[in-house]
Nucleic acid binder design. Structure first.
Length: 720
DNA sequence: GGCGTGTTACTTTTT
DNA sequence: GTAACACGCC
């Protein structure tokens, strides 16, 4: 980040349009900003914060809440650029990390310990699995996934127990008890337990209201009702609550986001001001027209129409590759062509997909074309098995009551504590009403006929490793150094190597990621912004952050590859949307659940389109490999909602494709002694599409070099 | 009683 | 590509 002088106060609102300026200048009282895609929303929010600071409001009294860590980080940086660095910066966090802060301070009032564990999806599922076995016994026909969803929905007040979901109720009851016993909370608790504190201990809310005089919420359309209740409670007294949102970009209803929040806000803050931002500063005219016409098919929405002054020709192209490999290759080669000849920087490209599984083939093709890329979201680094194991050790060290973490690592690496021993420990700990860890400790010292000498020795070995570190990690700082020693003591390297007996490559890779994890910890604790680097804070951070954000600094100049959900709030000069197919967009699963989900799926498509500034390339495969089988696919019905005249069908001309397209993989295959790629041996799939302008590959690539996108209007030239 | 091996099905989106 | 399960071996 380049260092810049703080802007003087009066230039803060200089380049804003009338409505934006009004939004920035309305610093007190409740305010609703309806901000369409690309309408300069982030700019308005950050300038509004800067304005508050310039008016003399102390940074720490402004609470800004966003939905994702990425958005929080970006906002922090932009506020920093606009404000006086010597003054306190406002805390900008996600709802969930705000929840962690509240709980860290007051959770003991609810009978939890301060060093509670935070369970992610994987921890939660393994706990539920354990409980289902315990409670339902032989009845293993229950769908744990929908069980988890029901528990979450009930907990956050989205539904109630009824005849239909009642079979999950016993599981839910035990689940709650277990979390409490393990001194653990799940993601829902990070929102729900603060609310419980508000209700039962008024001093908590009093303190928060005193602390935060100004509250801002970004992506308001994606907040759940429980989240809204937190915000409302904190802001009720001072009434300086500003919410910013766009109902057309609501794509998280499956996670509890509710359009009711808007109605609640209107009810709770009747004196609010409302400002609509409808001028789009991002996308070229055709892209915006396409987006508008797609979203107009939704019946359930607030009427608005985005407009722009930015003109450019031939912004939208559609391509129908034979399969996902051709699609991936098309994307990689087009990136190469535009970046090389059009002089567009790689980080100006966004490749978006509906599901994480579509990322892999594209990644491969980018690798093949030697294009630097970064993946956001997807299977998180912290979800990898080898990393989860290390984290489980740390969690157990921080919180010995954490049975889920203990069960994960008690026999990893193998130390002869198998199913029978674990079963015995379970029974004993239930009897003694204490955690597994305490039970193990007690067993080592006491005489108990149920435990053989050998088993006792093995348990002693386990505790012998953990115990010294419990004392050490109690003290903050030098955490990475301690972790390094723990990894040595556990002989993680030997363990990983023994897991891959035949080839050492994956073993090396895995151990490298373990080492990278240690480096991340070290980088985190040495960050001057981190005041007290405790083990708890580190664990809380990695529980809530998908990916280490510091990492991104190093690979700045690379293509972004991610799901549409992860792309919300971002913008790119060139956007590829892969897999624009029926069943993917809209996703078959979503419609299966409820036909009316089609509107959210359409919003998702809308969000994807509106990420593009100058060029949008859509592709729909004619066949796609789904799990084991190759399926014939149809194009997304949403494609028909874009006016014909805006779309140019991209048809590669055969000779070029035949010769070049497969070459990289075929060469690899040839080198490995394999046959030619079988992805060309496919059945001819009819892909009947209304006739649209057809352009050849050669002309397509040539155009990028000569006209640089054919931009004719007021769009600035691409930076070289 | 633990562990290695071979089999299965699973992949919507995320804090 | 992987995680969970069943089976038979040590």
């Amino acid at each position: 980040m380049p260092k810049r002088e703080p802007k003087p106060f009066d230039s803060l609102t200089g380049k804003l349009n009338g409505r934006q300026r009004a939004a920035v200048e309305t610093t007190t009282g409740p305010l609703l900003i309806i901000a369409g895609a690309g309408s300069g929303k982030t700019r308005v929010i950050t300038q509004r914060i800067a304005r508050l600071l310039a008016e003399g409001v102390a940074g720490k009294t402004i609470l800004a809440l966003t939905f994702t860590n990425k958005a929080a980080k970006e906002m922090r940086e932009r506020v920093r650029l606009l404000s006086d660095p010597t003054r306190s910066a406002p805390p900008i966090s996600t709802f969930h990390s705000f929840g962690v802060q509240i709980l860290r301070e007051w959770i003991t009032l609810l009978g939890f310990g301060r060093d509670f564990s935070i369970y992610d999806q994987i921890d939660k599922m393994s706990l539920l699995k354990e409980i289902a076995r315990e409670v339902l016994g032989a009845r293993n026909d229950v769908d744990l996934y929908s069980c988890a969803q029901t528990i979450s929905a009930v907990k956050t007040g989205r539904t109630e127990w009824n005849a239909e979901n009642d079979l999950y109720r016993p599981v839910a009851d035990v689940y709650r008890e277990h979390l409490r016993a393990y001194n653990a909370v799940d993601f829902d608790d990070l929102i729900v337990l603060p609310l419980e504190l508000f209700e039962r201990h008024s001093q908590v809310l009093d303190a928060l209201r005193e602390r935060y005089r100004y509250v801002m919420v970004d992506e308001f359309q994606d907040t759940s009702t429980a989240q809204y209740r937190i915000v409302e409670a904190v802001a009720r007294k001072h009434r300086n609550l500003c919410v910013v949102g766009d109902d057309d970009q609501s794509i998280y209803s499956w996670r509890g986001a509710s359009s009711l929040n808007m109605a609640y806000f209107e009810r709770d803050f009747p004196e609010r001001r409302e400002i609509k931002l409808e001028q789009n500063y991002r996308s070229a005219h055709d892209i915006l027209r396409a987006a508008n016409s797609v979203i107009a098919h939704n019946r359930n929405r607030k009427q608005k129409e985005l407009w722009t002054g930015l003109r450019a020709d031939r912004c939208i192209e559609v391509f129908f590759p034979a399969d996902e490999y051709e699609e991936a290759r098309f994307i990689a080669r087009t990136v190469r062509a535009i970046a090389g000849r059009g002089g567009v920087r790689l980080d100006k490209f966004g490749i978006l997909v509906r599901t994480n599984s579509l990322i892999a083939p594209i990644e491969e093709a980018l690798l093949g074309e030697n294009i630097a890329y970064r993946v956001s979201g997807g299977t998180s680094f912290f979800q990898r098995k080898e990393i989860k194991d290390i984290i489980a050790y740390l969690k157990l060290i921080a919180n010995p009551d954490d049975n889920v973490s203990l069960l994960r690592v008690v026999n990893t690496p193998r130390r002869g504590i198998g199913r029978k021993t674990v079963q015995m420990l379970r029974e004993l700990s239930a009897e003694r009403r204490e955690s597994l860890y305490s039970t193990i400790q007690a067993l080592i010292h006491a005489e108990d006929g149920r435990v053989s000498f050998k088993t006792r020795e093995r348990l002693e070995e386990f505790v012998g490793i953990i115990e010294p570190y419990r004392a050490e990690f109690l003290a903050p700082r030098k955490l990475a150094e301690k972790l390094g020693r723990l990894i040595d003591d556990l002989n993680i390297r030997g363990h990983i190597v023994s897991e891959h007996p035949d080839n050492e490559r994956p073993a090396r890779l895995k151990f490298r990621s373990v080492m990278r994890f240690v480096d991340m910890m070290s980088a985190w604790e040495n960050d001057p912004d981190v005041v007290a680097p405790t083990l708890f804070d580190f664990l809380a951070r990695i529980a809530l952050v998908n990916r280490d954000d510091n990492q991104e600094e190093s690979d700045r100049r690379s293509v972004h590859l991610m799901t549409i959900h992860a792309a919300k709030g971002l913008e790119f000069d060139v956007v590829f949307l892969a897999g624009v197919e029926d069943g993917l967009i809209p996703h078959a699963r979503a419609l299966e659940e409820d036909e009316s989900n089609i509107e959210e799926e359409r919003r998702l498509f809308y969000v994807a389109i509106t990420r593009a500034k100058r060029k949008l390339l859509l592709s729909a495969c004619r066949t796609r490999r789904v799990m084991r089988e190759v399926q014939e696919r149809a194009a997304s019905p949403f494609l028909d909602e874009i006016p014909d005249e805006l779309i140019h069908v991209h048809e590669p001309d055969e000779p070029v494709e035949q010769r070049d397209a497969g070459s990289f993989f075929d060469q690899i295959r040839a080198r490995l002694g394999l046959g030619r790629s079988d992805c060309r041996k496919r059945s001819p799939t009819p892909c009947v599409y209304r006739s649209r302008m057809i352009i050849s590959t050669r002309r397509f690539f040539a155009r990028f070099s000569s006209e640089s996108f054919g931009a004719t209007g007021s769009l600035p030239p691409f930076p070289v």
